[in-house]
């Protein structure tokens, strides 16, 4: 992943993901605030709306990308050179597990709705 997302590409993806997240969260908050949700089934139905669900799935992916670039930069700046490789592996693995769990949860929402 460090080879795939480096230099200018990483720089652009971080800005693109930041812009998407900046747009998504207020709009998602506004959308959810305008729904009448009193039961679990209603919540699942709202979350499973196709446009909202796809936007959320993209958001999950972009959170992982944004976190990868941002945290990687901090690790490169602050960690001793000898520890960077292990730390990047741990970061990649952690983000991979998190993303897998997040996608599984999103899929469960679709199944339950």
């Amino acid at each position: 992943m460090s080879r795939l997302l480096t230099g200018l590409k990483a720089h652009l993806w971080q800005r693109l993901s930041a812009f998407w997240l900046l747009m998504y969260f207020p709009l998602a908050g506004l959308y959810l605030a305008n729904q009448t949700i009193t039961q679990h089934a209603q919540l699942m139905a709202v979350l499973a709306q196709p446009l909202f669900w796809v936007a959320t799935l993209i958001t999950l992916g972009l959170i992982a990308v944004h976190a990868w670039v941002g945290v990687r930069d901090i690790l490169l700046d602050y960690l001793p050179r000898s520890s960077v490789g292990v730390a990047l592996l741990a970061l990649g693995a952690g983000l991979g597990v998190w993303l897998g769990f997040a996608i599984y949860t999103a899929w469960s929402v679709l199944v339950q709705a």
Partner: peptide
Amino acid sequence: LDDVYKTFRCR
């Protein structure tokens, strides 16, 4: 110059 260290360490 397109490299994570060479240019993009600039914050």
